[in-house]
């Protein structure tokens, strides 16, 4: 269940259209290099309370000009397994710790390209180390002072989300 916030209440620069475009470019650019993965984006939305519908998540705690932010990736396991099996040449168990390690590295690569793309647009995001977990172990972002930008996307039809949380 999400609480949609009016655009007029969202003043943080990371929610600007240019940043959203750079995030999408980072996601699509990385996945295109990892194999024949078709990435399609759905309209992004804003929320104060949102629960990811997919079972695997990755958190990256970062800063932008001393503002604490959090990036979260939420993945459908099917495209993750396809990506990892392409990278490793081995079968991957979607319920094992191996998939968490793998999705951490995938997120690391995506975030690296997002950072580079955003920096060319003037947004300097700090380095952050991805930490992966099963989404059931991830707290919902319930923070009266927090706002999420959520970008849904599909990878070869598997539903994924990029979430950007700004803490006020």
């Amino acid at each position: 269940m999400s609480t949609a916030l009016k655009l007029s209440t969202l003043k943080h620069p990371v929610f600007e259209k240019l940043v959203v475009e750079n995030i999408c470019a980072g996601i699509q650019g990385t996945l295109a290099q990892l194999g024949p993965f078709k990435t399609e984006f759905k309209p992004h939305f804003f929320a104060a309370t949102w629960q990811a519908p997919t079972p695997i998540s990755v958190i990256v705690n970062i800063k932008q000009n001393e503002q604490p932010l959090q990036v979260r990736f939420h993945f459908d396991p099917k495209p993750v397994v396809e990506i990892l099996e392409g990278m490793l040449g081995d079968k991957v168990d979607p319920e094992s710790q191996d998939i968490l390690d793998g999705v951490g590295e995938i997120s690391n690569m995506i975030y690296g390209l997002i950072k580079t793309k955003a920096s060319t647009a003037g947004f300097q995001f700090g380095m952050g180390r991805p930490e992966a977990c099963f989404t059931k172990n991830l707290p919902t972002n319930v923070n009266p002072n927090g706002q999420s930008l959520v970008i849904p996307f599909t990878v070869n039809g598997g539903i994924c989300h990029f979430e950007f949380i700004v803490f006020n």
Partner: peptide, 12 residues
């Protein structure tokens, strides 16, 4: 590398 996946990729 802190991710075993990437160590495996490089080693491969």
């Amino acid at each position: 590398d802190d991710f075993a996946t990437m160590r495996k990729v490089v080693k491969k």
